[in-house]
Amino acid sequence: MSEQVVQVLDWAGIVCILAGALLSFIAGIGLLRFPDLLSRMHAASKPQVLGLLLVLVGIGFRLLPVEESGVFSLGTLFLVGLFQVVTVPVAGHIVARVGYRTGRIRRDLVSTDELADRLATRGSASDPSEDTVS
């Protein structure tokens, strides 16, 4: 690869990694300042998906000019992104569900609560199909 292409790839990569680090920083602030579990989850999930994908793209741009290991690196990066994208929504769903069921969310901050309506119409927790989380 020519010198100029490598330079352009380097700049693109470092901009991506800078954006990812900025998202991590914002998530750190949000994690500290936000008032309850659900809003903290909202803040913390940004670097877990978007920030991480940006960083992986940046690593790919930086590692692409390395001749001997470029393709394997890209495969590993793709796997990391795939696992993260698949697992983060599941983990977030389970954590939020347990937080809701154990009453750790602040009711005064919730503007709409559709799950409460559903639970009220379904009846009490004697329905065993509801408690699949435990």
């Binding site: 990694i17 990812g20 991590s24 998530a27 750190g28 913390a44 670097p47 877990q48 920030g51 954590v95």
Partner: peptide
């Protein structure tokens, strides 16, 4: 949750 976020920071 914060351990999760810390892991994301570590990966970054």
């Amino acid at each position: 949750l914060s351990v999760d976020a810390l892991l994301a920071f570590a990966v970054t």
